[in-house]
Design a protein around this nucleic acid. Structure first.
Lengths: 117, 117
DNA sequence: TCTAAAGATTGACAAACATCACTTCAATCG
DNA sequence: CGATTGAAGTGATGTTTGTCAATCTTTAGA
């Protein structure tokens, strides 16, 4: 937040001088940007975005065995994508006997969503 | 939109049978997911996310020469990131003499933003 | 206890990516 | 024109990513 960028006047400078005023960059934004970029990166694959979409629409836990046939991908690949989403803090999972259920973590997308608005 | 996933009852099936009901997958979502994932992917780098952040906060055109010193990166690298953003349809650019100005395209983030809400 | 099923992990491999030093291009000033 | 400047383009390089086949782990049924 609060990036205060100074717009310098544009004239060709007389050789040796810097083009623009040195702009101070607040470190505050760094961490937030890193966090949000991590979430965005995890959503930056059509398969993962659709996985999240399905999980959200179901508003409950969905079994992996129901997710796999939705895509033209092998089970390990879907499992891999789910792992990426889990590591990004977007989804959580629970085991129940043989089955694994995934669900979207409620606040996971909040920060990015707020920034985008 | 409108992914209608059927939740099948979970019982260990008697060998050879499929775990879940075959779930019909509407092709509609495919294209939308691809588009949104493309945008998300472009935002999935801290540098690019910060670039967009700066450009948005300025609500006008910002010169590349003011963007470069914001990051600990070479000018070609920043230029490369701007190109990625341009190809994702997130920013536009204009040349004015020696300088190049970038700005956020107003509707670029709308679809993703709406989906996230 | 033996077998099969769900799902995760591993290893491999090609494709994509981030970065930089170097170069090129276009525009401006003297 | 000749020199310089802002910005984009070009390899080159090391890293990350998406995918699958094969394997492993855990659980449940027979």
């Amino acid at each position: 937040m609060a990036i205060d960028l100074e717009l310098a006047p544009k004239v060709k400078r007389p050789a040796g001088e810097r083009c623009c005023e040195p702009v101070v960059y607040p470190e505050v934004e760094r961490d937030q940007a890193t966090r949000m970029a991590e979430v965005a990166k995890a959503l930056g694959d059509p398969v993962r975005l659709q996985l999240v979409d399905v999980l959200r629409k179901h508003a409950g836990k969905v079994c992996v065995c129901e997710l796999v046939p939705l895509f033209d991908l092998s089970q390990p690949t879907v499992s891999h994508h789910l792992k990426v989403l889990r590591q990004a803090g977007i989804v959580g999972s629970e085991r129940e006997g043989l089955w694994a259920y995934y669900y979207v973590l409620p606040d996971a997308l909040k920060e990015l969503s707020a920034w985008l608005n």
